[in-house]
Design a protein around this nucleic acid. Structure first.
Length: 644
DNA sequence: TCACGGAATATTTTT
DNA sequence: TATTCCGTGA
């Protein structure tokens, strides 16, 4: 048996890593370049602390995705023992959820709240917009989606709605008052119906810690050590939450890389990482600059890319891994040839022994991969797609969730509307009438059978009532509820979609996911804040061993990951950087960092491709230049190739 | 009031 | 290109 009681830290970590791992109390800032062993450092630090006798439950590890924290804690457990699994880990949002479920009542908030996702948010705004008659028939009035962006931006950037409209949507300033009053309606509505959107989770947590000192103290003393990954992508509210959580003990370690900040669009403030030493006196700063991931030619290119950034904070990555050839920029005649090129190269790599799970294709936006997906399917090459349009976004999944959400929270207007609109011959008007009738009966689900309804839909309402009467969240399993709902919903599905067999299969998968849960609340919460990030739920995608699947991913979802060979497709100026970013210097800079993130994912091979010509309907012109960040890089750093 | 079809229009990234 | 919006006919 291997003695795990002492981990040979000094043998497996370099000097700065070791320093970070050994660090005890007080504020610590780790600036970690791409591939410099950031995850490793966090993992070892967790193991080291637990080994030194710090109770695992008093350690809080905040990461960008739950997957990331789960993975780190698993690795820490491998290093030491299962105690590491008791470390609390998760995202800011899941942490906020956990705290609020417990203490929300201190804010006068029902702790059985429902979390609404972005689509629900837009939907609710739509309902309120219609009710208030705001912007009716006015084509210049912002769409639901735009309104949602404005509201959310105002929270995440800590600005007023007026400021956001003024700054980012100046052409809509005429509607400023209406937008502001809609915003008030939206806030009130959520409050009145126990609905929290993503932003509310952070806002309420921050308020709770700020306003209720006893709770703040309790939470602070529970989590004596806090570690935060990807700190460059946190926003002001998150920084404030951390500040409140560590007021007394100041035991906070943040890890990040300003060059990899790619969430400014969502309010992430790079300033957080830059001003961390000002916020916490006596901050120790450690820099990790040695890259263990990539061969030097890949790093040389990455350095050349980030070199053109205006706001660069000097940090030059170096590697001891040599490589023979520079990465290649490949021009193809059109999109399909680009897909073909990628496909051929992948086959070639496979023949050389590179496993498919060691290869990834990255892109700026989900839809950039559509053509490639078709080609891959045609060649029966198994892949998994991460980011972009998700499993959870599909209408049929949301439909089924709506029934469950109403079971859980009968105040959930959005779900009620969704359910009612699924009925035949029921449109927005009838849905509203029915919903209001139910509400006035104040009987939640049971009210359905009590209300008066027009004959033409009486039968359907009856069936719906029967369904709800047979759903008993208290004494049925989550999957059991799911099955019951499916028996009602499958006929609806058949009626509504011509591709129902495929969708029915998705629903089967959903039920399988439900089987992992023992209570409805945690299932619904997870589906809202940590939904499967894949186009089709990963666990069921293809029944293949893991090492036989290729990864397709948005660059955002590829953060923190690495592969032997990486393709970046659609490096066409106007697509990447996106045409929308071209006029704003700070947006353009974020695109640059995004390319940097993408490039630094590669260990050995990096291929960047772009189709030579694309007619762009937005600008009415042809796009035919490669990504501007690459164009001026010399051929010895980035080789050029043309494929016909 | 609903459902359907044609026209306009906006087009990323994610918790 | 795909969604969303609007107007029309049922």
């Amino acid at each position: 048996m291997i003695d795990k009681s002492t981990i040979p830290f000094a043998d497996v970590l370099n000097e700065p890593q070791l320093e970070a791992v050994s660090f005890d109390d007080g504020p610590l800032l780790v600036i970690a370049g791409a591939g410099s062993g950031k995850t490793r450092t966090l993992t070892y630090r967790v193991a080291r602390m637990v080994q030194d006798g710090i109770p695992p439950a008093s350690i809080l590890l905040l990461t960008f995705t739950r997957r990331a924290s789960f993975e780190m804690l698993r690795r820490a457990s491998d290093l030491l023992d299962h105690r590491c699994e008791q470390v609390s880990g998760g995202t800011f949002h899941s942490f906020a959820n956990a705290v609020l479920r417990r203490y929300a009542t201190y804010l006068g908030l029902d702790n059985a709240f429902t979390i609404i996702d972005r689509a629900d948010m837009e939907h609710l705004i739509g309902i309120l917009k219609k009710e208030s008659g705001a912007g009716a028939k006015d084509r210049t009035f912002p769409k639901n989606r735009t309104l949602a962006s404005i509201f959310s931006a105002s929270v995440n950037k800590v600005l007023t709605v007026d400021d956001i409209v003024f700054e980012d949507y100046p052409h809509m300033h005429l509607h400023m008052d209406t937008i502001a009053s809609l915003h008030t309606d939206y806030q009130n509505y959520k409050q009145g119906h126990s609905l929290l959107d993503y932003d509310d989770l952070l806002i309420y947590l921050s308020r709770l810690l700020e306003e209720v000192e006893s709770v703040r103290e309790r939470v602070e003393s529970t989590y004596r050590y806090i570690m935060v990954d990807e700190y460059q992508d946190t926003n002001q509210i998150q920084a404030n939450i951390l500040y409140l959580l560590t007021r007394q003990h100041q035991n906070i370690m943040v890890v990040g890389d300003d060059s990899q900040s790619i969430y400014a669009f969502r309010g992430a403030a790079v300033e957080n990482i830059l001003s961390f030493p000002n916020q916490y006196a006596n901050t120790t700063i450690i820099r990790l600059e040695q890259n263990y991931r990539s061969v030097q030619p890949v790093l040389t290119l990455a350095n050349a890319i980030i070199d053109t950034a205006v706001n660069k904070y000097t940090k030059t990555l170096f590697s001891t891994k040599t490589g023979d050839a520079p990465p290649v920029l490949v021009r193809t005649t059109n999109e399909n040839n680009q897909s073909r090129f990628v496909l051929d190269k992948i086959k070639e790599l496979s023949l050389k022994g590179v496993r498919l799970n060691q290869i990834a294709v990255l892109f700026r936006a989900g839809f950039h991969a559509f053509d490639l997906e078709i080609e891959l399917s045609r060649e029966a090459l198994p892949f998994i797609k991460v980011g972009g349009f998700k499993f959870m976004d599909s209408a049929h999944i949301k439909d089924v969730l709506a029934y469950l959400k109403v079971c859980y929270n009968s105040e959930d207007t959005i779900s009620w509307y969704r359910i009612l609109l699924l009925l035949d011959r029921v449109g927005p008007k009838s849905a509203r009438d029915i919903f209001q009738a139910i509400q006035t009966h104040g009987m939640g689900v049971q009210g359905l059978s009590a209300i008066k309804i027009p004959d033409r839909i009486a039968k359907q309402i009856g069936e719906l009532a029967t369904l709800f009467n047979s759903l008993h969240p208290e004494d049925m399993s989550v999957a059991g509820l799911g099955e019951t709902i499916l028996s009602y919903y499958l006929p609806v599905l058949k009626n509504k979609y011509d591709d129902h067999p495929k969708r029915a299969r998705d629903l089967e998968q959903l039920v399988s996911i439900m089987e992992r849960y023992t209570n409805l609340e945690s299932f619904l919460t997870d589906m809202a804040i940590e939904p499967p990030n894949t186009a089709v739920d990963e666990t069921f995608a293809v029944a293949l061993p893991d090492d036989q699947r290729l990864t397709l991913s948005t660059i955002h979802s590829a953060k923190g990951l690495e592969w032997h060979s990486v393709f970046i497709i659609w490096a066409l100026d106007g697509r990447f950087p996106s045409a929308r970013a071209i006029n704003k210097p700070e947006d353009l800079e974020e695109e640059l960092r995004l390319l940097y993130v993408a490039a630094t994912r590669a260990e050995q091979n990096l291929f960047i491709t772009y189709p030579g010509q694309l007619f762009d309907r937005i600008s009415g012109s042809f796009l035919n230049r490669p990504c501007r960040f690459l164009d001026s890089i010399s051929a010895d750093v980035l080789a050029r190739e043309v494929v016909y």
